[in-house]
Design a protein around this nucleic acid. Structure first.
Length: 303
RNA sequence: GGUGCCAUAGCUCAGUAGGUAGAGCAACGGACUGAAAAUCCGUGUGUCCCUGGUUCGAUUCCAGGUGGUACCA
């Protein structure tokens, strides 16, 4: 490796099960870097097996951040992640040149790379109130409310998507301003370089890896882990591929085979959504997870 | 071996009173600014088992074949 002059964040993305963890750890060792996980489910300490979080052994010798740092009952969001990561990097780059950020949560990665609009926190009671309104009155009421409060956003938003509408409404009601006026979408200028690397496999190979990984997770007593958090199953953090299906098995709603089959299907779909997100990055270089040497060479030329 | 039933999308199956076909699931494509492994939107991808016959026209009717299935031997 040449001498690195500019602090650089190496971002490694890719669909679930493609092999990001292994590549990131090998790179971290070669480059003497630490790792930030940008995986919105590996934050939670109660669910390492089903989220394929890096194990203690894997993390041996490579410092990891944002793995198992939260409880599933903690409230967390992208903005906090951005704030914490940027804070960490500011410190880290005083004495180091390279950090690796690896993960599959596109929104979280974008927040770190590009920043996210500064919006106030929403009162818990307001969010709850809106959720109840939606439960009781349905989507139509929310749509009408949004048309009154923020006609501009009403024109752009996917009106069938309750989450988008609820979000816009809570911001409008909390701030007294329109959501559209607060959504400026400025791209943040970061005081470090960013190099994006994508890992991909063809569909057949990825599906095969997905199936094998599900099998391995079950071998590692995933079901015990699921049962241990069953009482928390309504937490958002557990609205997660694998857990929601196995909860239905545990409750007796589905038989085992059905649950496993659904996990496979939903994991494939998740991987597809991730690829859709990452494919729009125009500053990314794609590799197979097997070509570590090519990745190192590519980085070497750019650092 | 005999008789009945079945053969249509990747799977389970509808359907066409003869004018080349459609549901569910799967699959595929897309969106995405504080719940994102979330949430939402879009798309039929087909030798209608094979061969021949009748017909202007057969996936549909007829005959034979092949495969499956049930019952009888």
């Amino acid at each position: 490796m040449k001498n690195k002059k500019h602090p650089t964040l190496i971002v490694i993305v890719g669909p679930t099960a493609v092999g990001k963890t292994s590549v990131s750890i090998q790179l971290a060792k070669k480059l003497n870097a630490e790792i930030i996980s940008a995986d919105s489910r590996q934050f939670y300490k109660e669910i390492p097996i089903g989220t394929a979080a890096p194990t203690k052994e894997e993390m041996e010798g490579v410092k990891h951040h944002f793995v198992g740092n939260l409880s599933v009952s903690d409230y967390y969001n992208v903005s906090k992640f951005e704030y914490e990561v940027i804070g960490l990097l500011e410190d880290y780059f005083k004495t180091n040149d390279l950090m690796i950020m690896v993960g599959g949560s596109g929104l979280y990665i974008d927040a770190v790379c590009n920043g996210i609009d500064k919006l106030p926190d929403i009162d818990e009671s307001l969010r709850k109130q809106l959720n109840e309104l939606y439960e009781k009155e349905g989507l139509n009421i929310l749509q009408n409310k949004l048309r009154d409060l923020d006609p501009e956003y009403y024109e752009q938003v996917d009106l069938n998507n309750p989450k988008r509408i609820l979000r816009a409404l809570e911001v409008c009601l909390q701030t007294g301003k329109t959501y559209s006026s607060l959504r400026v979408g400025n791209i943040a200028k970061r005081p470090f370089n960013i190099i994006k690397i994508g890992l991909e496999l063809n569909r057949e190979q990825l599906n095969d890896r997905i199936n094998r990984r599900i099998y391995n997770m079950l071998e590692e007593k995933w079901l015990d882990e699921v049962k241990s958090v069953y009482h928390l199953k309504d937490e958002n953090a557990l609205n997660t591929v694998g857990y929601k299906e196995l909860f239905k098995y545990v409750s007796g709603e589905w038989d085992y085979e059905t649950a496993i089959e659904k996990i496979k299907v939903n994991t494939r779909r998740f991987a597809k959504r991730q690829m859709t997100w990452f494919k729009r990055y125009d500053d990314i270089k794609w590799f197979s997870p097997k070509e570590l040497n090519n990745i190192v060479e590519y980085l070497d030329n750019r650092l």
